[in-house]
Design a protein around this nucleic acid. Sequence first.
DNA 1: TAGATTGTTAATCGATTAACAATC
DNA 2: TAGATTGTTAATCGATTAACAATC
Lengths: 217, 217
Amino acid sequence: MSASETDRIPEGVIERLPTYLSVLIQLRQEGSYTVSSATLGEMTEVNPAQIRRDLTHFGSFGKRGVGYEITMLTDKIQHILGSDHTHRLVLVGAGHLGSAIASYSGLRARGFLVSAIFDNDPQKVGGRIGDIIVRDTCELGRVVAEQSIAVGVIAVPPKAAQEVANIMCESGIRVILNYSANLVKVCEGVTLHNTDPVRELLHTLYYLSRAEGVARV
Amino acid sequence: MSASETDRIPEGVIERLPTYLSVLIQLRQEGSYTVSSATLGEMTEVNPAQIRRDLTHFGSFGKRGVGYEITMLTDKIQHILGSDHTHRLVLVGAGHLGSAIASYSGLRARGFLVSAIFDNDPQKVGGRIGDIIVRDTCELGRVVAEQSIAVGVIAVPPKAAQEVANIMCESGIRVILNYSANLVKVCEGVTLHNTDPVRELLHTLYYLSRAEGVARV
DNA sequence: TAGATTGTTAATCGATTAACAATC
DNA sequence: TAGATTGTTAATCGATTAACAATC
């Protein structure tokens, strides 16, 4: 029955949790106290039965006849994802994209703190993004190891991406988010997410040429 | 057999095509002429059988005993996705993220052309990003309609996102890529992709707290 | 020809959904 | 209590994979 810690949770479930979280935070800001799976389903475009099913992997958080208490469910999901405490991250690449990520307020709001920024362009090293000074990429490994940082974000040109990923893996990074156009490989034990904006545009483009084949992606 | 135009193609297949494309382009740059599903599978971390299965939805592009001709397969996939010709897009939001998107070389390289950039901050209107002048968001609808632009990218603060999406839908945009932290809703017939960087970080974060539960995402 | 690798089928696996008893 | 909505089961649906005959 539910909540068994040893459950292997399907990937799809984990993907949907942050989406539920976004909507819950939005609802809380609007002053709601409880929400039903029906409403949550309408807002996230996920089948209500699926939402209930997803949540039972971790416990039973609702009240029959009432729904889910928003604050409580928010806390639970944040705890499941591990975003109930702050995670420091390193960012490599101080170009436009890197600057955008570093100065994105949504990061801090959801538990991430940019600890250091790196670039190998001498013109950028020593400059600042917000109140963080850009360091030379040759310091990346040392900083990650010394500060035991677990999360790394790659925002460098495609050709440099794999090299950065290698350094990250060697120095003990556990989660990598790669924004470059090249796919990278990581060693065993490191969680990787390749997320190229243009790749996502191409994906949606498919539906453009098909008059009827429109989809929510 | 295969390639029947009326096939309903699974969403997963469409998601993987741009990934295959990335790797094919990479291989071509390295000077290869053909590639087997085994190699492609290793590089994309997709099961070779699945790659072959995916491709049969659109035709049979390989030679038994040989593999796939890289240039030919690249062209085919680009044709399927519709990226064999240029797509103009409008970008709303001239902040850090918007600037990063607008000046990202990967866009042009894969068939996208930023036609216009909008912002509602009077301080930004009239300024330039690259060689494009930032216009007031109140002109968005008119420009989209006049130039029949089909693709729109949202890079505004969360609270403004839905309003921008509404204008886009009304003026005839067909595909929307939403980078804001808020989910938006679009009307029937518009393809939407919500892609918030922090949501993706949260997703990968799940695996951080689970020593063994590491995954490629 | 022999070796390699595709295209395709059939089997497996897992995820989604509908339905409903439990219960607030 | 009656109405609402959850948690959970069982049925459906679709996607992934293994296997192999076709064939380059």
